[in-house]
């Protein structure tokens, strides 16, 4: 499950409450029916956490760090296999201060995995990583899913949520404003598709007629520049497209029809963009 929301939405606070770093002001936290507060020690044995802002001992090597975390847990641990899985075998005896950002994030994930937990909490694991490292981490997380582990991932990256999540919880300013699968969210909150057409020559009369007829598709266009844009139900957009093609055969140069994305869902729900860039 992904916790999706802009910075300041409360994703980190929520995770910190769930893993016992911050006490909630009210309410209860239960793991499989057991209250977190009364069964804390046992529950901590079964969960793995990767925090957003934390560093580890920079003078330790990768191997030593994993060994340290392994020593905290009762159950058996598999450091050697983990190193291979994280693709850190070559860096096993390198000190943390010499690792790259991507390597460090993989190590932190490793520390959360060293005791084979059933449930993982990851807070913005790919923040500030280059695209290649992000991809690698996504693959790792997917393999964790395949093993049947539960993953709660906090992120403000829409593509990450779309790619990895089975279910998404959208957070904004401390509230859950929507929840569901990516498909469900899009279809519930933003049924629109977008159509963009480039025409070399668009007849003025035809244009005025279309604007009247397809008013609810929020038609926009520029006759000189030669493009037309519309947003609405795919079925209606298809009708518009067919008309365009029928009356302007030979002059239609490009057609783009895209589905609404999570971005559009968030925009619909909050009136704001999710990205702060």
């Amino acid at each position: 499950m992904a916790l999706l929301g802009p910075n300041g939405a409360g994703k980190t606070t929520l995770i910190e409450m769930l893993v016992g770093l911050t006490p909630p002001d009210s309410g209860a936290i239960e793991y499989g029916g057991c209250s977190f507060f009364t069964h804390k020690a046992e529950i901590l044995e079964t969960i793995g956490v990767q925090l957003q802002e934390s560093t580890l001992y920079k003078k330790y090597t990768v191997r030593e760090t994993l060994q340290l975390f392994a020593s905290f847990y009762r159950g058996p641990t598999q450091e050697a296999a983990l190193l291979t899985r994280l693709n850190l075998q070559e860096k096993a005896d390198t000190r943390l201060e010499k690792l790259s950002g991507g390597q460090k994030q993989r190590l932190y994930l490793g520390c959360a995995l060293v005791h084979n937990p059933q449930l993982l909490f990851l807070d913005e694991p790919t923040a500030a990583l280059d695209p290649q490292s992000r991809r690698h981490l996504w693959e790792l997380i997917q393999s964790l899913k395949k093993e049947g582990r539960g993953v709660l991932l906090a992120t403000h990256y829409l593509d990450e949520a779309e790619f990895l999540a089975d279910r998404i919880l959208i957070l904004d300013q401390g509230h859950v404003i929507a929840t569901g699968t990516p498909r469900e969210l899009i279809s519930q909150h933003s049924r629109e598709s977008q159509l963009d057409v480039q025409v070399r020559h668009l007849d003025r009369e035809a244009w005025t007629r279309m604007q009247r007829e397809f008013a609810r598709l929020r038609l926009q266009g520029d006759l000189e520049a030669g493009w037309v844009s519309a947003a609405g139900e795919p079925a209606d957009l298809e009708v518009l497209l067919q008309q365009l093609l029928a009356h302007h055969k030979g002059t239609v140069q490009a057609v783009t029809m895209r589905q609404s994305r999570l971005e559009d869902v968030f925009l619909q729900l909050t009136g704001r963009k999710i990205r702060d860039e």
Partner: peptide, 13 residues
């Protein structure tokens, strides 16, 4: 300050 200790809090240590 480096939030090192916090990480330990999420473990049974």
């Amino acid at each position: 300050r480096e939030n090192l200790l916090r990480r330990f809090l999420t473990t049974p240590l």
